[in-house]
């Protein structure tokens, strides 16, 4: 699945559509401790995190992630959205919790 295809699903809302691209979501990763995520996530992943601080953008850039998915409609800091747009990292919000997001991505064939 490509990142911009996620927008076809109403339960996923992209907060910075100008950052969307046809980059492939190659895998997934879940984690909220940014030092751990930096060291362990794989490039191309869709990253599910409840952490909304602007530092998540730095981590996504560093790891070359495809996008960030914020569960349970957790509120995003404006600074995070601005930075993510500058850096070309799409951020999605969804009412699903982290487990439900992973199950859904898995059902779409992302392993």
């Amino acid at each position: 699945m490509k990142v911009n295809e996620l927008t076809q699903y109403p339960e996923f809302t992209c907060v910075n559509e100008s950052a969307l691209s046809d980059k492939e979501i190659e895998c997934g990763y879940v984690g909220d401790l940014l030092s751990w995520v930096m060291g362990n996530a794989d490039a191309g992943c869709a990253w599910v995190t409840i952490q909304t601080h602007v530092n998540i953008v730095a981590v996504a850039v560093l790891v070359e992630m495809s996008c960030i998915i914020i569960p349970e409609l957790a509120e995003l800091e404006e600074e995070t959205v601005v930075k993510a747009t500058e850096e070309g990292i799409p951020i999605f919000q969804t009412p699903k919790n982290a487990f439900e997001i992973c199950a859904w991505l898995g059902a779409q064939g992302i392993k």
Binding site: D32, L33, L34, S35, W36, V37, M38, Q51, H53, V54, N55, A58, V59
Partner: peptide
Amino acid sequence: IMVSLGFIP
């Protein structure tokens, strides 16, 4: 802060 945010903003 180093673990939660990776670095000091």
